[in-house]
Design a protein around this nucleic acid. Structure first.
Ligand SMILES: [Mn+2]
Ligand SMILES: [Mn+2]
Ligand SMILES: [Mn+2]
Ligand SMILES: [Mn+2]
Lengths: 229, 229
DNA sequence: ATTTCCTTTTTGGCAAATCAAAATCAGGGA
DNA sequence: TCCCTGATTTTGATTTGCCAAAAAGGAAAT
């Protein structure tokens, strides 16, 4: 069995190598920083993982998952996201407080329990932040999402995903009616001022910085204005 | 924070020192055996726990919990039993497969999540095996239970607790309608033959060995025959 | 071609938890 | 009293993760 440390390394490598704008290899320093260890620790851990055939390691360049490592990473990610949804849907917790819980529970939940939760939740495909939940085989659906900024003048769009999952940002998003599933219009994008103005369905107009707006994604397909062919 | 290893040691010491027929101190050898480590390991661990003020250690004699250790032990036990009940009630798992899950989950669940589960389950006081669930302050109710053997000729009694929690025994108990909450009559106790005959409410008469019958406890108060004053 | 600076790796150490096997102890029996 | 035996403790190692700080590499700037 992989230890929870190993699981976290693999999961994190997966997230980093599938992040937009990522190169083919994840640099050691970045990995170490996100995992909260000093670079030397990451280096020695990664060598062990390479030894075990879970990653491919290119010294002084970076690391990427092997098929075996990717499979394990997706297995962990599935548990993480399923647990997050469970905490919100079944236990009624706030979406801003679930990540840390999931970070521990993802290592303690068996396939058996996972299966029961999956069934109880009705085979969900998205977690509370709008991230896809891998299925038991590690497959997850792709969606065509665009950052809020690109949705100017498209009429009503639906919030689909919130990428910044820090507590403070999630609470902000919630307070302002920008949770996944909520609808809004992007009224204006002022590139010079660096401000995006949106109007949530049942909330007052709201200004966001360009950076901030980039952390929210909406459904490409517009809703309620243009009918799909 | 106590590691999961420390939590398991404390919980186990608690269970052993409150077990019937236990002396004032738990012997190292027994503790080691139940925790699945060699005696030397237990000795050095216990010395560390004594150092931390969690147990009182009498070399060559045994160990017992300090107030601080007892508090922590009860906190772990609460999570263990609450999780077991949760797995049965909410996820619909079989009571014979929940212990090992709980053994891991008990270390991964925060007070916050515990509180939600407690509420969802309606502040339960008993786990699926009939063992008491400590409350958040570590208090648990005492019940006046007697072993099956002592209930001869008392008419209908209610199964209250199953002490042997091995998978095979729990499945046997289930199959034969002897789960906590079920009613039965103790028809005969033959001390010479070493056999107890019981008649479950909706099952056929059944013979149990004396030893086996001792692993099941029933409510002292008889049910359905004598009315309480 | 050098130097400089930043990243990465190496080295040496530490803490937690464990085992194997040798040493020690404490009673009970001779 | 003395020895034997079984339980307990010590000792010496190992594994997993981690840090601090020194060493090494490499790429860009001079
Ligand atoms: Mn998360
Ligand atoms: Mn984690
Ligand atoms: Mn249990
Ligand atoms: Mn445990």
């Amino acid at each position: 069995m992989a230890t929870s440390t190993v699981e976290d390394y693999l999961k994190q490598i997966f997230l980093m190598e599938t992040a937009e704008g990522a190169g083919p290899l994840v640099p050691m320093g970045q990995l170490a920083q996100i995992l909260g260890v000093v670079p030397g620790t990451a280096t020695s851990m990664i060598k062990t993982l390479a030894e075990a055939g879970l990653v491919k390691y290119e010294p002084r360049t970076g690391v990427c998952l092997s098929p075996k490592g990717r499979k394990l990473a997706l297995h962990v990610l599935r548990r993480h996201r399923m647990v997050e949804l469970f905490l919100v849907k079944v236990l009624g917790m706030d979406w801003s407080e679930i990540h840390d819980e999931a970070e521990r529970l993802e290592h303690a939940i068996s396939d058996r329990v996972m299966e029961r939760i999956d069934e109880l939740l009705g085979r969900p495909t998205l977690d509370p932040h709008g991230d896809p939940i891998p299925d038991a085989e590690g497959k997850m659906g792709r969606r065509e999402l665009v950052p809020l900024v690109s949705a100017e003048g498209k009429g009503w769009v639906e919030v689909a995903r919130v990428k910044d999952q820090t507590e403070v940002f999630l609470r902000f998003v919630d307070r302002n009616g920008l949770k996944p599933g909520r609808r809004l219009q992007v009224v204006a994008v002022d590139a010079v001022a660096g401000v995006v103005t949106v109007e949530p369905e049942d909330g007052s107009p709201l200004s966001l910085g360009l950076e901030t707006a980039g952390r929210i994604e909406v459904e490409q397909r517009t809703v309620g204005v243009v009918d799909e062919g």
